[in-house]
Design a protein around this nucleic acid. Structure first.
Length: 584
RNA sequence: GGGGCCGUGGUGUAGUUGGUUAACACGCCGGCCUGUCAAGCCGGAGAUCGCGGGUUCAAGUCCCGUCGGCCCCGCCA
């Protein structure tokens, strides 16, 4: 290999060595006499010096421009006294060029290849290969790489085996919209791309593989968000002969390894756990960000005797009065509170009661509706003190929770109440098994149809299925769902029962999931698992706000690739082979 | 499907009430300069203001439509 060192390698100890470096011209500084080049590769920057003494070489170096790819042979020198650069790892030395070859010239890039100037994202995406040259992007991709390796090492060391499952599979009902792939060989038939390898990993358990993992692409044809791409990566895991506790401890160990190996951070040995019910009641979210307070307080009992009609009506109809207390919020302006009200209404609230706490009492015209006792009790419930602001919602319990959960996050973001330097990891457990879908007028699986109900709630499946809890769990990091899983159903009769609850008829179940049901008849072990949103995890570890920043070639909000222009039309011949005619 | 923000030289922005040659920084090109590393100094080129209509004596600015990007709701088992 001609290249002797990378651009991040040379140090004082290398002084005197003859070296050959290759890389991109990051910057050049032409002093008329001496010319400096910052040569960049993914390992770092090295300063190359062209002295005027070698006239031919000096002339050649003058033609260099940004992003030219060059090869430089030269000798490593200590920089002159006081000329070192503390900001780069190679700042102690420089390479005095003796020979230079332009390996490839380059057009002036459409945006600067550095971390300072942030070009608009559509431009970055169009020239993604240039965007990826920027050190910040290289760091993100390197972090992603480290997480892959840590994950593989961890699972390998713990007897998990990595198995690839099909990308071309059968379209399944339930869940997200499938991406479809037409079959050329079978006219009118389609494969689907997996939303997740769920059924396959369960079949691998039936097959006796015992402990499986895979870092795998999944596809969901739904609308995009900052943390949602049509194709994304999961760490998919499944284990036999386990209960939820076994999954928790495995994940806690894995997360500890990832945090430690990739960021040098420490984690508690086990994470806080909170039931779904508690999460909703305390934080108004099934993925609560617990890095800050503003917890929801239930005032239904406390204000029961007031003369405030809005509250009393709500309580009479079985609703709840709940609120949050914003420390120091009494200083909010009228318009700021109006905006909070508007936010709450957009989130689905009928209204928002805002009460400023004065020096020794409520500073509010609602005061008259509440007795001294009630006001004191309310302050106690919140632990509120002077200059706080109470934001109160009256609604059906679940609705009030959700609105306040949104409001809680909104206020925390606006008021900078979230300590960004902390990591809060927790398990949310005991999710509801089912959810009623008013559109389809049936129950749908909250997690997926293979999730086992909790034993204690099996009796509810006939009487009050909406009350049944599942052996399902999510892992939440700083208010983001980064993993979710469950203990699965492994008995055919229970699985049949589940399908019937979901209003999936026997014939339909047989048709769509027959292979899984059959498999359950041949000795399926109890099993369960979890899947991580890999991109989200890396995004959070990298401190980025969008998973696009940790995906090499992501798609835009409208699911197109600005770089290669997909999706695109295809030739009529291709369509013909696939037996497809486009509708007008 | 819906709501919000944005679109001005290569890049990032300013131009807010409509009014002369659309401004600034960086970049680019040329010149000067032997120790810079956000190099410096001098000069220059470069924009039909996303696109299409409309209102007006006059539109980057106002109105309508459209395209694109971003954020959110719905959706995402």
């Amino acid at each position: 290999m001609k290249r002797s060192h990378t651009c991040g390698a040379l140090r004082g100890a290398d002084v005197g060595k003859k070296v050959t470096l290759m890389g991109w011209v990051s910057k050049w500084r032409d002093h008329g006499g001496v010319i400096f080049i910052d040569l960049r590769d993914r390992y770092g920057l090295t300063q190359i010096v062209f002295n005027p003494e070698d006239e031919a070489l000096h002339q050649e170096s003058k033609q260099l421009r940004s992003e030219f790819v060059i090869e430089v042979q030269g000798e490593v020198h200590t920089r002159p006294e006081g000329m070192g650069n503390q900001n780069i790892a190679t700042g102690e030395i420089e390479v005095i060029a003796q020979k230079m070859t332009v390996l490839n010239a380059a057009l002036t890039p459409p945006f600067a290849i550095n971390n300072e100037v942030e070009a608009s994202e559509d431009l970055r995406l169009k020239y993604r290969y240039l965007d990826l040259r920027r050190p910040v992007m290289q760091r993100s991709m390197l972090l992603r790489h480290k997480v892959y390796q840590t994950v593989r090492r961890f699972f390998d060391e713990n007897d998990f085996i990595e198995v690839e499952t099909p990308i071309l599979m059968r379209s399944t009902p339930e869940g997200a919209r499938d991406y479809l792939v037409p079959s050329r060989i079978h006219s009118g038939k389609f494969y689907a791309l997996p939303q997740s390898p769920q059924t396959y990993k369960q079949l691998l358990m039936v097959a006796g593989f015992d402990r499986y993992f895979q870092i795998v692409k999944c596809f969901r044809d739904e609308d995009l968000r900052a943390d949602r791409q049509p194709e994304f990566t999961q760490i998919d895991v499944e284990m036999s002969f386990v209960e939820a506790e076994d999954v928790y401890s495995m994940v806690e160990e894995l997360m500890g390894k990832i945090l430690n190996d990739c960021l040098g951070a420490e984690l508690p040995k086990s994470f806080r756990r909170i039931t779904w019910d508690e999460a909703m009641n305390t934080y108004g979210s099934d993925k609560p960000d617990t890095r800050f307070g503003l917890e929801l307080v239930d005032l239904s009992q406390t204000v029961a005797g007031s003369s405030f009609r809005v509250f009393n009506d709500t309580l009479e109809h079985g609703g709840a009065i709940k609120g949050i207390c914003v420390p120091g919020g009494a200083s909010f302006s009228r318009s700021k509170i109006d905006k909070l009200t508007e936010f709450a209404k957009n989130a689905g609230a009928k209204g928002l009661v805002a009460i400023k706490i004065g020096a020794d009492d409520w500073d509010s015209n609602l005061k008259q509706f509440f007795s001294d006792e009630i006001r004191t009790a309310v302050l106690e419930e919140f632990g509120a003190v002077a200059n706080d602001l109470l934001l109160i919602v009256a609604d059906k319990l679940q609705h009030a929770n959700e609105v306040l959960g949104d409001l809680r996050l909104h206020v925390a973001k606006n008021e900078n109440l979230i300590p960004e330097d902390r990591n809060a990891l927790l398990w949310v457990t005991e999710f509801p098994l089912l959810e009623y879908d008013p559109e389809e007028q049936r129950y749908v699986a909250r997690h997926h149809p293979f999730t086992s109900p909790m034993e204690d709630d099996l009796h509810l499946l006939d009487s009050a299925p909406e009350k049944a809890r599942a052996k399902a769990y999510d892992l939440v990091l700083n208010g983001n769902e980064i993993a979710g899983g469950s203990i699965r159903i492994h008995k055919r009769d229970l699985q049949n029962k589940m399908f019937s609850l979901l209003n999936i008829g026997e014939e339909e179940a047989r048709n769509k999931f027959g292979f899984l049901l059959d498999a359950f008849e041949y000795g399926a072990p109890p099993h369960g698992g979890i899947a991580f949103g890999f991109d989200r995890l890396v995004m959070l570890l990298a401190g980025r706000k969008s998973i696009r920043d940790v995906i090499a070639f992501p798609k835009t909000n409208s699911a197109v690739s600005l770089m290669d222009g997909s999706p695109n039309t295809v030739d009529e011949k291709q369509l013909q082979e696939l037996h497809i005619r486009l509708r007008q």
